[in-house]
């Protein structure tokens, strides 16, 4: 088994004590940075990009972006995350997948203005905290597929 299904029934779900509305996030490392995206948008995780395309995509090609290469980081993708939102889908190359966490919506913050001004940080829509670590919220829809 080279692929791990996640979707909405994410395993290893780690609840947080915060009250109020929360979102389940998949934490991963790419381009020397801790990133997160909604686990509900994660279809599967595979060690090879070839394993991502399921039966529906067998005839077509799933667009792929290695986040390390995209952000000009030296690391290579060791895992691939299949992302899907509605009819949009793609494969994201990452260094490693760390955890699935529940983050309180009120604890998430928009990207600082200093970072919004840079076009290259456009795929990030916010920031959050996992214990002591700062993570960036990735919106794959903003990547140049």
């Amino acid at each position: 088994m080279s692929a791990l299904g996640l979707g909405e029934n994410a395993p290893a779900h780690r609840p947080r004590p915060e009250s109020g509305r929360a979102i389940s996030l998949l934490l991963f490392e790419a381009a020397g940075c801790l990133m997160a995206l909604p686990s509900a948008e994660v279809v599967q995780i595979a060690v090879s990009a070839r394993d991502l395309a399921g039966p529906a995509e067998a005839s077509g090609s799933l667009p792929l972006i290695d986040l390390n290469a995209h952000f000009a980081a030296p690391a290579d993708a060791a895992l691939w995350i299949e992302w899907r939102r509605g009819d949009r889908a793609g494969g994201l190359g990452v260094v490693c997948v760390l955890d699935v966490v529940s983050a309180a919506l009120r604890a998430l913050r928009p990207m600082p203005a200093w970072l919004c001004a840079a076009r290259s940080t456009g795929p990030f829509w916010g920031v959050g905290l996992d214990q002591e670590e700062v993570f960036l919220l990735l919106d794959p829809a903003r990547l140049p597929w």
């Binding site: 940075c33 000009a72 200093w114 970072l115 840079a118 940080t121 700062v134």
Partner: peptide, 18 residues
Amino acid sequence: TRIRSVPGAPASVAGLVN
């Protein structure tokens, strides 16, 4: 103690600190 760099950030931003 720790500054989290942000990929693609301008040189004027060192990163994010908790």
